[in-house]
Structures are given as C-alpha cells and as structure tokens.
C-alpha cells in the first residue's frame, strides 16, 4: 500500500528516517478522522497515446538536442511514441466536494533528469520536500513563483517549498533543462495515486462520500472525470478504466508529426540545394 501523497523515499539511512517521519505524521493526521480508509482500485488506459512534452520538445531538430537521432528498426513503431512513464507522470486524484486539509510534507525526489513524481496534485499549503538524489547539484526554481527562487541543492540535500494556493505551478532546474515538474494546487484533493506500468492504481480515501476521480498529466487534467461514491468497503473501478487519450487522435498526431518532419526535411534539402 502506498501513502496517499508523495513517493517513497530513497532507501538510504537519512531518507528512511525521513520517510518514517512522514508516515507517522500522515497516520497521526488521518487516524482521528477515520478508523479505516477505503481503497479505490482502478485502471488507466491509453497512456501510450499521450506524449511527454519534454521529450517531444527535445526531439524537435530546432532544439538542437542531438546531432543524430535514428530509430532502431527492430523496435516496433508503436513503442517509438514518446509516451510518458506513467508511474511518475500520471497522477490520479480523488477530489472531494469540499476543501481538504493539507497533508504532511510530501517527498519529491530530484534525479535522473526529472522529478519523482513529475506531476502532483495537492491541497494548497502542502509542503513539498525536494531531495536531490543525483551525485551532483541541482538548482530548482518555480516558474514565475516568487517564493521559489533558484537555489542550489547539493547531493543528498533537501529543499522545502509550500504550495502557495490553487493553480498550476511549474518547477524547473536551471542546471537540467529536461527537468520539469508540475504542481497542481487543488483544495479539494483528498488522495492521489500513481499507476503502475500496467496502468493499475489504488486510491485511499479516509472519509466515505462522493468523490471525483481525475487523472492529471503535465499539470493538466486528462481523460474523463469519474464520479464515485465511497462507502466503508473498497471499490473496484477497473471495469471502467480511465481512458486518458484517444488512440486515433494519437495516431493522427503522429502522422501529422511525421508529415511535418518530412516537409521540414524537404524544405531544408531544397534550401540546401539552392545554396
């Protein structure tokens, strides 16, 4: 079972201690409200029809991200689409009808060219703890966020930031252009979860009642909002998976992308020939 907010800490002695503290704080906050949390099991579909905006931007030749980039013939075309890594990038949130209390600090790992998670939905006032898990420093900052100015975070160090209000906040790293994180401040979010590679997810809500299950990707809502009524028992939503993106639209987008790339290549060749 995963905590309702945030991700597991890295398995180092320091982070283990931090993770334990997070758990204790979270349990302390949730236990008086409910004796037993209900689990909402569900599944997302169409993750491979999504497109990671960072990677999609990086593949554009105009971004000068590479000197050569070629597909490997043995890899099937369907896998070449730059779909996101769902366990980090697709955030499933259970939205209550009323504002929710801010949860304990949520750990965000910074490493490997991205944050974990990449998208997170939390109530305003939630404190996020950014921990550098890379062997080199990062310099995080919030885009147009006065309370999150660029500052170095060395290896293993942490940095705190509280979500100032409702809205979408983008976090970047001055030293790693590919690192982009989106924090969605929503006062009604009661629980969040991240799907597995297969698309399965499990939300833990503490209070019975009416909820809306909504998926978020890259700071935006994706797919339909799924209203659910939670009672004392666990709820299985797998039979009606959240369809995040339409395959036809994705295929059409891919075709359009291929056509665009082809026309640009032809244009470049023509210009080269004229020269």
């Amino acid at each position: 079972m995963k905590p309702p907010f945030g991700q597991r800490l890295p398995a180092t002695s320091g982070t283990r201690w931090g993770r334990a503290c997070g758990w204790v704080a979270l349990l302390t906050a949730l236990v008086p409200a409910s004796a037993e949390a209900a689990r909402l099991r569900g599944r997302v579909d169409g993750v491979r029809n999504l497109l990671n905006p960072v990677w999609a931007e990086a593949r554009d030749p105009k971004q000068h991200g590479y000197s050569f980039r070629e597909p490997v013939a043995t890899v099937r075309a369907e896998f070449r689409r730059l779909f996101p890594h769902a366990p980090k990038e697709i955030c499933i949130a259970a939205l209550a009808p009323a504002p929710q209390k801010a949860p304990p600090p949520v750990l965000v790992r910074v490493g490997g060219g991205r944050t974990t998670p990449v998208t997170i939905v939390v109530p305003p006032g939630t404190r996020l703890t950014f921990q550098n898990t890379d062997p080199f420093k990062h310099r995080l900052h919030g885009v147009s966020i006065p309370t999150f100015q660029p500052a170095d975070t060395v290896r293993g160090a942490t940095r705190e930031w509280s979500v100032p209000g409702a809205g979408v906040f983008e976090i970047r790293d001055e030293l790693a252009p590919s690192l982009r994180m989106w924090v969605v401040g929503d006062p009604n979010v009661a629980a969040i979860a991240y799907p597995s590679m297969k698309g399965d997810f499990a939300l833990s809500v503490e209070q019975p009642g009416e909820y809306t299950v909504q998926a978020f990707f890259a700071g935006k809502k994706i797919g339909p909002a799924l209203p659910v009524t939670v009672k004392d028992a666990d709820l299985d939503l797998s039979k009606t998976p959240l369809k995040l993106a339409d395959e036809k639209a994705a295929v059409a987008a891919d075709k359009a992308e291929v056509e665009k790339a082809k026309s640009e290549a032809d244009s470049d060749a023509k210009q080269g020939g004229e020269k």
């Binding site: 960072v54 990677w55 060219g113 590919s178």
Partner: peptide, 9 residues
C-alpha cells in the same frame, strides 16, 4: 540505489 537517468531525453 535510486540512481536513475530515465528523465533525460
């Protein structure tokens, strides 16, 4: 143990 590179394009 958590060293990763998956975010780089």
């Amino acid at each position: 143990e958590d060293f990763e590179l998956g975010g780089y394009p």
